[in-house]
């Protein structure tokens, strides 16, 4: 197969290609999924940034 006699080698040659296809299909199917947490996390993020700024002001007088 593919000019290679050892099935462990031509097998893995194909396996590399198939696993890439798996990544490709997964990415395409889920391209727009799981973006919904953003809003909540953004709020948390803002609160965190505020507290970080406060801390820096306190510590460094910036």
């Amino acid at each position: 197969m593919l000019g290679i006699d050892d099935p462990w080698i031509w097998g893995v040659y194909l396996l590399c290609i198939f696993s890439t296809l798996l990544c490709l299909v997964y990415g395409l199917v889920n391209w727009n999924k799981e973006g919904e947490q953003e809003a909540l996390e953004e709020k948390e993020e803002e609160a965190w940034e505020e507290s970080e700024e406060e801390m820096q002001q306190k510590e460094l007088g910036m």
């Binding site: 590399c16 997964y26 990415g27 999924k33 973006g35 947490q37 996390e41």
Partner: peptide, 23 residues
């Protein structure tokens, strides 16, 4: 990254990239 959606997309990009590197 800000959500799992970015990671889903990353799987596609990363998979092709790695095949073209070490493969």
């Amino acid at each position: 990254v800000k959500s799992n959606r970015e990671l889903n997309r990353g799987v596609l990009i990363g998979g092709i990239f790695i095949l073209m590197m070490t493969g």
